[in-house]
Design a protein around this nucleic acid. Structure first.
Length: 349
DNA sequence: TCTGGGGTCCTAGGACCC
DNA sequence: TCTGGGGTCCTAGGACCC
């Protein structure tokens, strides 16, 4: 690349088809066949969606998020496997350990992603070495994006798939991104893209040239200007290596068939509240706020939440609060989903 | 395509207080 | 009291991401 002196780079590593890849390592005989992973692996079960699908399954129009029953219809010859989170957790930990053997800062970003901070005069060579080591020690492929910040590196790893390396910096941002729709940016989804389009802002270039004050009026004083910032290719550049401290935790269940007997609801809420409180205790955290979520037909979601008088780890206190909140919900419709969420007190910095 | 589960952050409106 | 204006907390919901 002609760069002669070392400078600081952000790399984004994204494991290719992570869940499917882990499953294929355990079931090598399925390589080359359409495989769909999700739920308990029973494609006749309603209200279960695919966590991932191999390229062979994608060729039949199957993709992650698709109901398994639809996937079965589109690809009857597919192999359906149950989701196995502990196995993915373990595989992820092995990959992160490989990364930490390099002279880089590592910020874990979910199971199959990490941001790396590195000072080097040849980021492509570093990326290739990382790919080689990950491949050698875990037999997993990854794509690596190189950027000046996390936003650029994240988009670059998308361009690098599969198993490639791509550099996206201020130098090639405009030529790479300007013509793309606004939801190509990391943080702008379908909803916001549609609202932006209604204002005549369809491309990244148009958003980059928009008036920040105008954006603030439509999207709020934080979000509006931030969207323009994203369109200019800017973003966070600090790699945080300290473990993430969760803000809260939740458990929810979608019932295979709607709950129609209101008498059953408190039992489920009690179960969920006790589980969430146990999880909090296991994590050594105190609960300060409780929230109860109900989704009814037709896919209408409502939440009720309340702050507790004092932080607690007591299951009975959390359950009582959840049942109180349940009493503030309308329970006349068939129930599709019940959930209990809690917010933790944050430790002093 | 009848639409999972687990997170994070932001916004708006009302209550409350001085 | 026919009143004002700001600050902060709380709650509900929206949007986004993996």
């Amino acid at each position: 690349m002609g760069t002669t002196s070392a400078r600081r780079w952000i790399l984004h590593l994204d494991l290719d088809q992570f869940i499917a890849a882990v499953e294929l390592l355990r079931h090598p005989e399925l390589r080359g066949r359409p495989v769909v992973v999700g739920g308990s692996g029973d494609p006749t079960q309603p209200r279960t969606v695919a966590a991932t699908a191999t390229y062979e399954a994608r060729e039949h129009g199957v993709h992650s998020g698709m109901p398994l029953r639809t996937a079965l219809r589109r690809c009857p010859e597919a192999v359906f496997l149950p989701s196995d989170p502990p196995a993915y957790e373990a595989a992820s930990a092995r990959v992160m350990a490989v990364l930490r053997d390099f002279p880089v800062l590592v910020e874990v970003w979910g199971w199959d992603e990490a941001f790396l901070g590195a000072t080097t005069d040849d980021p492509e060579a570093l990326a290739a070495a990382l790919q080689h080591a990950v491949r050698a020690r875990t037999r997993l492929d990854c794509s690596i994006g190189i950027g000046d910040n996390k936003h650029q590196a994240k988009l670059a790893s998308g361009f690098a798939k599969p198993a490639g390396i791509h550099r996206l910096t201020g130098d090639n941002w405009a030529e790479t991104m300007n013509h793309r729709p606004t939801d190509a940016l990391w943080g702008i989804g379908a909803r916001t893209a549609k609202k932006l389009a209604a204002l005549g802002l369809r491309t990244v270039a148009q958003l980059a040239a928009a008036d920040p004050a105008e954006l603030a009026r439509h999207f709020g004083r934080t979000n509006g200007p931030w969207y323009r910032y994203l369109a200019l290719g800017k973003g966070e550049a600090e790699v945080v290596t300290t473990p993430w401290i969760a803000r809260g935790h939740s458990r929810e269940t979608t019932f295979t068939y709607d709950l129609t007997d209101p008498a059953e609801v408190p039992r489920h809420i009690t179960d969920l509240a006790e589980r969430v409180t146990r999880d909090a205790a296991d994590a050594g955290r105190e609960i300060i706020r409780v929230s109860v979520k109900i989704r009814t037909t037709p896919f209408l979601t409502r939440t009720r939440q309340a702050k507790l008088p004092a932080p607690t780890t007591d299951p009975a206190t959390v359950t009582r609060a959840a049942l109180d909140l349940l009493g503030r919900h309308d329970l006349t419709r068939p129930i599709r989903l019940l959930g209990v969420a809690v917010e933790y007190t944050m430790p002093d910095p």
